[in-house]
Design a protein around this nucleic acid. Structure first.
Lengths: 179, 179
DNA sequence: CAAGGCGATTGCACTTGGTGTCATCACGTG
DNA sequence: CACGTGATGACACCAAGTGCAATCGCCTTG
């Protein structure tokens, strides 16, 4: 992170990262499949945590509510990394490569949520859209949370994003007008 | 596409692609910034087309409706590439690298839609979520459309995905239970 | 027709990300 | 002490990209 902060993601070489860590380039690639992965080390843990919370969630919750609750609970563990989270977000935003990687991590998270929802008895098609919506809400709320000093109530932000999404999606059906 | 179909995306080298096209590796990189980009050549045109349709859409349409209509109208131009579209979708699905690239193209499309919505007077926060929802619906419908023989009525699939998304998102608000 | 002008193509050298293979090291165990 | 094992490292190698300068094809203009 120090190196990236000084010179930007693209200008730092893997060899340099390894050297700073007292290791070799080869050893770096034994731990991370990618240069990018170094910034997403915790992603799998987070995904697993969400899945775990979701599996344990109340049976009578609506799918979207259960997903958002699981995301929030797992997200609370991130609060301790407040400063790091902000720097990381900025870094990711600064590089296309990293934004790409972030997107696929979110997509993977959505798939994992969808699977957990299916296990709760939600039909697959609906589970997938529900999971995607939940992740979109989470991303939105998380961005707002890091932009302020990570001080705000996260659950609150989630509910607000969800409300926004509902407003966005709800509208009267329209006439076809095209093929 | 022939090369990719024969041996898979990862097993084909840029030099080979260039050679098959009667060009040089160097020339390839004059036309495409990336190996991946070769499969997303039309993405910018599509994005522009969507933005154009959205700018011309009826003023009294709800934002989500306007966005979906624009996506559908722009999408109809893709119908002529039916076979190619299917092969391309399969190829993308087969490679993580390509899925990543596809995701960022969709994200870029969403940003472009959001900007167009802002120009229509929609507040930025809501515009972004609306655009993301619209793109999610489009992706869902497009997947269904390519999986069948590209025979189905696309607008119909869009409306169905939208209905699914609405059902997914609509639920009674819940009690906080956490921080 | 000759002389330029200019964009597209190319050759070449070079950096960096990433991988396969094998040797070596550190360390805990019987 | 010998042994097995997992982590580290050295080394050679491939493919993706990039910078730079030369050249080619073609079109314009005198």
């Amino acid at each position: 992170m120090d190196l990236f902060a000084e010179r930007g993601y693209a200008e730092v070489t893997v060899a340099e990262i390894a050297e700073r860590a007292g290791l070799t380039k080869r050893t770096f690639f034994n731990h991370f499949t990618d240069k990018r992965e170094v910034l997403f080390a915790g992603a799998k843990d987070f995904e697993d945590s969400v899945a775990k919370h979701l599996a344990e969630a109340d049976d009578d919750l609506e799918p979207i509510e259960a997903a958002l609750l699981a995301l929030t609970e797992a997200g609370l563990a991130l609060a301790q990394y407040g400063d790091y989270a902000r720097a990381r977000q900025e870094l990711i935003a600064s590089s296309t490569e990293l934004r790409e990687r972030n997107l696929i991590k979110m997509a993977s998270l959505a798939v994992s949520i969808a699977e957990a929802l299916v296990r709760r008895g939600v039909p697959p098609g609906r589970a997938s859209l529900t999971a995607q919506a939940a992740v979109a809400v989470f991303t939105d709320a998380y961005a707002a949370w890091t932009e302020r000093g990570a001080t705000a109530d996260f659950w609150n932000l989630m509910q607000q994003s969800l409300a926004d999404l509902r407003r966005a999606v709800d509208a009267a059906p329209s006439r076809p007008s095209g093929a």
